[in-house]
Amino acid sequence: MKRSIKNITLISTFVLSSSVALIASDLTKAYDMPDASKLIEKDLLKEPTKFTMPKSCNLDDAEAIKRGAFFFHNLNGKKAKGEAPKGVKKFTEKKGKDGKMKKKPKQFGNCVACHNIEGAKGGGNIGPDLTNYKKVFVDSKTRDAQFVYQKIADARIDNPKTHMTINLTTKLFDESEICDLTAYVMSEKKQTKEK
């Protein structure tokens, strides 16, 4: 009898003191601090990767050059003006969490954000001016197709500290799309607006 009373007081002091502690001082869970580490972990950029330009790349193909131009001058399918060239989709369909198909704009290169080039509207200057690229860099044998392909695919191989976007290692584009961009950059362009 005596013992059980003692137990009860013991339990009640314990309950009392812990709830007091909760009210008076435990504020360590009283605010939101959501976890971001997993999000970041999954989003990390992979190691610099060497690529070889596929033999199937046809740099003289007018259709490829058109697609490349479209990727170069546009940010994504939602913002892209005008009709997409043959073989390019502005949107992709993906199954959402609710099982419904969702339309997602395809991401393009937005290369013009950093590079000036023939016909650029609001071209940036973080990267070198690519105007007259064929004459200045290709015909002079300063650059070849493999160099340009690798630069666009993963610029870190040539320049570990590059500020340029990484386009193939990240799977933003696939191989044939990198071919299209390479074809466009290396092609001879008219000085007039061409997009």
Binding site: L45, T165, I166, L172
Partner: peptide, 9 residues
């Protein structure tokens, strides 16, 4: 300083 995301920036 950590590069990540669709464009590796």
């Amino acid at each position: 300083e950590t590069a990540r995301g669709g464009r590796g920036l």
